[in-house]
């Protein structure tokens, strides 16, 4: 089952979503940030954006703060979905 991080109302109303989706076992551990047709991925090991596009500056600081506050929880969720590709592993 996918994991969706609960977000404050203001972010939800602006259509932001943070998810760990299925079928991503071959990728480095990451969370997906979704807003309308855009998608950003942040590596759970390095805390860095994984793709050059879309512009990472378009992700609001408020959302990045929520991610930081829930980092350990997100890492645990990834590990439970992908036990063969845990966050603490080879970079």
């Amino acid at each position: 089952m996918p994991v969706e991080l609960p977000l404050p109302k203001s972010l939800r109303q602006a259509r932001w979503k943070v998810k760990i989706q299925e079928k991503e076992s071959r990728e480095p551990p990451h969370v997906s940030i979704l807003r309308r047709t855009d998608k950003w991925r942040i590596n759970l090991r390095t805390r860095e954006f994984m793709n050059a596009e879309p512009d990472s500056n378009d992700v609001p600081d408020e959302l990045l703060d929520v991610l930081r506050q829930n980092w350990s929880w997100l890492c645990r969720q990834w590990d439970s979905m992908y036990p063969d590709n845990p966050v603490v592993g080879e970079e």
Binding site: M1, P2, K17, S32, L34, R36, T37
Partner: peptide
């Protein structure tokens, strides 16, 4: 779902 980023199969959501 998710503006075309997600394929849902019941509770399963593929990227």
């Amino acid at each position: 779902a998710d503006y075309g980023h997600t394929v849902r199969l019941g509770k399963y959501e593929a990227a």
